[in-house]
């Protein structure tokens, strides 16, 4: 056993923090079974977090928001799994260059041999463009290879939007997403073929921040 030599006031605060964390966790679990809720206070002897809107567990703002970006390879791998395509051939820039060869460094890959980049570089502006390009090229490849889901009527398009969301985000599309992507379909009528709409929907879901931040 290690002896706990911390001062008693620290022990007291730690106990309070643990209590708050447990309380939030238990409340969040409890909320899963509720369809709605009202603001509530989290109990605790030293800290009161105040009212928290908790209509849905996901609607609570996380107290800790230390998100990270997927590296290029992880992103490509997750896209490949979602799109049922081999990661090695998922994305080719200009039809010939491997996307990770072109964009890897922009998306936190390393290349110690020639470039001597030995640790990931975050925050490059090219990362944003690179992510969009990889998503569009991969989605296009999937749509060309396998065809998008049928989109003949509103019902089919609704199913198609849901299927893209399930593939790429592991969830159903929200009503807002259904509405806006259906509106895009209407806008594109006569402008481009339906595969373009499918690719665009795929691209949008594949580049929402929830698809590459974790």
């Amino acid at each position: 056993m290690f002896r706990d030599s911390r001062p008693s006031w620290i022990k007291g605060r730690l106990t309070a923090v643990v209590a708050v964390v447990l309380a939030v966790g238990c409340s969040a679990e409890a909320d899963l079974s509720q369809s709605g809720g009202t603001g509530r206070s989290v109990p605790g002897d030293e800290a009161d977090l105040g009212p928290v809107d908790a209509a849905q567990p996901g609607d609570q703002t996380a107290l800790v928001s230390e998100l990270k970006s997927k590296s290029g390879r992880r992103y490509v791998n997750s896209l490949a799994a979602a799109l049922d395509l081999p990661a090695q051939t998922l994305c080719r820039e200009l039809g010939e260059l491997d996307c990770l060869d072109v964009h890897g460094i922009s998306l936190q890959e390393v290349e110690p041999r020639f470039l001597r980049v030995q640790s990931p570089i975050n925050g490059l502006v090219t990362g944003a463009v690179a992510l969009d390009r990889i998503a569009i090229l991969s989605c296009d490849r999937h749509v060309r290879n396998q065809g998008g889901p049928p989109t003949d009527d509103t019902f089919q398009r609704r199913e198609a939007i849901d299927s893209w969301a399930r593939r790429l985000l592991r969830r159903d599309a929200t009503e807002l997403e259904q509405e806006k992507l259906e509106a895009l379909y209407e806008e594109l009528q006569g402008e481009s073929d339906e595969t373009q709409w499918s690719t665009a929907v795929c691209f949008i879901f594949a580049t929402l921040t929830e698809s590459f931040l974790y």
Partner: peptide
């Protein structure tokens, strides 16, 4: 089309996702 898709993503959909509300304080996002 890319411009329109980005506009839908960034202005209409992204801010309303559950993920966005959950991680509203994320500096990386």
């Amino acid at each position: 089309l890319i411009r329109r898709a980005r506009s839908i993503r960034d202005e209409l959909l992204e801010p309303e996702t559950s993920f966005a509300r959950t991680f509203a304080n994320s500096r990386e996002r």
